[in-house]
């Protein structure tokens, strides 16, 4: 359906914006390494199911793309364009996010089974993975426009999945409570950012937090 297609496209675009920003400016200023490491974890734990579950060629290719691009971005950030200044303000305690997601995945899953726990873990972790990045924005008070486009596209992906879930609930009777709940949590976390993005970036102002 259109929402899911738009969501996936927006997810894809967010990664391309990020890669392009890093390659062109040859800098990772303002980008949170911790958030990027969390995304590697999210993609690895959710998408390694491609080794034992086949959905479609589209699904497989997208999974491969997200795993490899997220690892590549972390590689660029650590080895190629290391930025100690940015690292110094990247101080969000992600161990709590990882630990909390792990505990929640043990409690909430469709079956107490390795693959299902990993899937649940990835959903919880994804819902909060942007926090170190938003935290960094708050500390610096402003961001490069491209960085805000990246965050917007990434947030739009899960937000667009919400009407997709409603659509699938109506048309197929399919309801994935875990994905829906964590997707809503994720959208709420982004809501403040969306608001500022809409009021400043789209109207041509610099991204500055009030």
């Amino acid at each position: 359906n259109i929402f899911r297609a738009a969501g996936d496209l927006s997810h894809l675009i967010s990664i391309l914006i990020l890669l392009n920003t890093i390659q062109k400016s040859r800098s990772i200023a303002g980008i949170s390494l911790k958030t990027q490491i969390l995304y590697v974890l999210v993609f690895l734990t959710r998408y390694l199911d491609l080794t034992y579950r086949y959905v479609s060629i589209y699904n497989t290719l997208m999974k491969l793309f997200f795993i490899s691009s997220s690892i590549y971005i972390v590689y660029l950030m650590i080895y190629k364009f290391k930025n100690t200044e940015t690292e110094q303000i990247d101080t969000f305690p992600i161990e709590y996010l990882i630990g909390g997601s792990f505990i929640l995945s043990l409690i909430f899953n469709y079956k107490f089974q390795f693959g299902e726990i990993l899937w649940s873990f990835s959903l919880w972790l994804e819902s909060v993975a942007i926090l170190p990045q938003l935290f960094m924005l708050q500390r610096t008070g402003e961001a490069r426009t491209l960085t805000t486009h990246y965050i917007f596209a990434l947030g739009a992906y899960r937000t667009l999945y919400i009407p997709n879930w409603i659509f699938r609930w109506i048309s197929e009777g399919r309801v994935d409570y875990l994905a829906i709940f964590t997707g809503i949590v994720q959208t709420i976390i982004y809501s403040d950012f969306f608001y500022i993005y809409y009021h400043r970036v789209l109207k041509g102002f610099k991204f500055e937090l009030p």
């Binding site: 959905v55 479609s56 699904n59 997200f66 089974q113 693959g115 399919r174």
Partner: peptide
């Protein structure tokens, strides 16, 4: 093993 929900999304 089949999962309860078919994980076919990204």
């Amino acid at each position: 093993t089949e999962s309860i929900i078919n994980h076919d999304e990204l």
